[in-house]
C-alpha cells in the first residue's frame, strides 16, 4: 500500500482528545489514591482540596460515596469511568493508526472498570491494572505508531491535560513550568498545531514573577489559554 502521513481534521481531533482523556484517567486515579490515603486517618482539610476539585458539582455526601463515585460514575465528567469512556470513544476511531494491540489496553481498562462497578468494588486498589494498562498503552503507542505526527498530536494532548490538571489542583510553579516546557517540546515538531498568539500570551503569564494560582482571575486565564492553545 502507498503510505502517507497526512492526518485528517477528524483524526487529529481524536488523537488530541485520546491523549487528553487517557492522561486524565491516569491523573484522576493518582489523585484519588492520594485522597484515599488521607481519608484513612486524616482530617477533612487534608483531603478537601482534592475532593472539591474532583467533585465540582458537590454530589457526593460521604467518603465512601465520593470514592465510589469518582471511580465509576459515568454522568460526572470528572471521574475515572467518564475519562476512560471518552478516551475509548476517540481511540475506537483510530484503530488502524494506533493498532489493535495498543487499543486493547484501553478495552481491558474499560471492561475492568465496568466489572468492578458491577461487583461494587470499593477499594481503589482494584483499579491498579487501569494504571498499569495506561502506562502500557503509552509505551505501546510510542513504540508502534508509524506516523510520528500522529504520536506528536497524542503527546501534545497528554501534556496539555497534565498541565491543565496541575493548574486545577494548584501545583507549584516548578511543576507547572516543567509541564509547559514538555508541551512546547512537542510543538517544535508540529508548529502548525499551535495558536501562536495564545502561545505568546502564555509565555508572558507562566513566569516565576507572575505565577500565582491563588489569583482566581489569573488561574482562569491560564486555564482558558491552555485549552485554546492547540488548533485541532
Amino acid at each position: 500500500m502507498v503510505k502517507h502521513t497526512i492526518i485528517s481534521a477528524k483524526k487529529a481531533n481524536s488523537l488530541y482528545w485520546l491523549g487528553r482523556y487517557e492522561e486524565r484517567v491516569y491523573i484522576t486515579l493518582h489523585l484519588l489514591r492520594k485522597c484515599h490515603d488521607k481519608m484513612i486517618d486524616g482530617e477533612l482539610e487534608d483531603y478537601w482540596p482534592i475532593w472539591q476539585n474532583l467533585d465540582t458539582a458537590g454530589v457526593y455526601q460521604t467518603n465512601e460515596e465520593f470514592i465510589f463515585g469518582i471511580m465509576y460514575d459515568d454522568i460526572n465528567p470528572s471521574t475515572v469511568m467518564s475519562a476512560q469512556m471518552r478516551a475509548m470513544d476517540n481511540a475506537i476511531l483510530l484503530r488502524e493508526d494506533i493498532l489493535s494491540e495498543t487499543l486493547s489496553y484501553l478495552e481491558m481498562s474499560l471492561a475492568l472498570l465496568k466489572e468492578c462497578r458491577n461487583k461494587q468494588e470499593k477499594n481503589v486498589i482494584c483499579l491498579q491494572p487501569v494504571i498499569d494498562w495506561s502506562l502500557a498503552f503509552w509505551g505501546s503507542a510510542e513504540q508502534r505508531l508509524k506516523n510520528h505526527k500522529a504520536l506528536y498530536i497524542m503527546m501534545i494532548g497528554r501534556n496539555i491535560e497534565n498541565l491543565d490538571m496541575l493548574l486545577r489542583f494548584d501545583y507549584d510553579f516548578e511543576r507547572v513550568a516543567l509541564a509547559y516546557d514538555s508541551v512546547k517540546h512537542y510543538f517544535r515538531h508540529m508548529p502548525s498545531i499551535v495558536d501562536d498568539h495564545i502561545e505568546e500570551e502564555l509565555n508572558r503569564l507562566i513566569t516565576r514573577e507572575r505565577f500565582n494560582l491563588k489569583d482566581v482571575e489569573y488561574k482562569n486565564k491560564l486555564l482558558k489559554f491552555i485549552n485554546q492553545l492547540v488548533r485541532v
Binding site: 502517507h4 497526512i6 492526518i7 485528517s8 481534521a9 477528524k10 476511531l93
Partner: peptide, 22 residues
C-alpha cells in the same frame, strides 16, 4: 495498511479524488 476515511475526509478536485489533511 489502508487509511480509514470518514465522511468529509475525501473530496473531488479537477475530477480526481483526494484525502484531506488538517
Amino acid at each position: 495498511g489502508a487509511t480509514l476515511a470518514y465522511p468529509g475526509d475525501l473530496f473531488v478536485e479537477d475530477n480526481k479524488v483526494y484525502y484531506a489533511g488538517i
